[in-house]
Design a protein around this nucleic acid. Sequence first.
DNA 1: CTTGATGCAAAGGATTTGCACAAAT
DNA 2: ATTTGTGCAAATCCTTTGCATCAAG
Lengths: 147, 147
Amino acid sequence: MDERLVHIKEKLEIEGYRLTNQRIEIMKFFLSHKGHYKPEQIYQQLKRKEISIATVYRIIDLFIKFDFIQEVTIGADRYYELKIFSKKIVHGHFSCTNCNKIIDIDDKTVKTMAFSMISHTERDQEIAIDQISIVMQGLCDECKRLF
Amino acid sequence: MDERLVHIKEKLEIEGYRLTNQRIEIMKFFLSHKGHYKPEQIYQQLKRKEISIATVYRIIDLFIKFDFIQEVTIGADRYYELKIFSKKIVHGHFSCTNCNKIIDIDDKTVKTMAFSMISHTERDQEIAIDQISIVMQGLCDECKRLF
DNA sequence: CTTGATGCAAAGGATTTGCACAAAT
DNA sequence: ATTTGTGCAAATCCTTTGCATCAAG
């Protein structure tokens, strides 16, 4: 078995989950398809392999819980892509144009949006992105009261 | 009447649309509420003013078409916020770490995502953002083939 | 044989649409 | 009068869930 699958299996089993055929098929799908896919697209590829759309959704939730994959949203569409084995870096900062204070933006939502931006742009421009740096400027909490 | 509403009215009428009471109420809502809202939230605020949820959705579509408001998506949730009268700036670039080529990222999806990031961060950090600059790094189309 | 996983179909929530009626020009 | 807009309810799309059954340890 693919060593990456062995790794997945171990991770799952530590918490009492099993690596079933359906989970193997979905993980193999992600391992062999770069990019981001909707649940329906994954289902279409795998349905001849004894899998239902409800299971696709449930396995996606599980894989997200284990950080094997991540959700990227483009517009209001939800896609999923492999996260484990990937080492993309997100830097986020805010700088106040009045007092010059710098705030580190490190929250999960911004990170998720950054990954969405990366996924979209990689597909759109046919490039490979491994870092994103986001700098926002404006007025901080305190300074915005003065204007 | 509020001069901003007069402006909205003119824009609409050029293309044969009318500024109805429901449209006025929704525009007044956006003009007086900074931030982003879901259709249901707008509906809850305005339902005593003779408006149905279907109309809220239809007017949102219309206002987007006219660029009066814009959609921001946070996770898979769709919110709407005033766009006209706002002058936020988005800069997007990609730079290749191998050949140093710089590509301007100016597409609509990235801009929309940037606005989502701004909206979320403004609310989250209680700050006011007027610029965002996004720099992605990695391998361009050509260079990625070499690795 | 006990726990976890799946399939199916039903339920849910968000959004869209067809149609008859109402409002604006 | 003619065109545009709205409300209502039904339809649609995406996603989740309850339950009976199946599979794995």
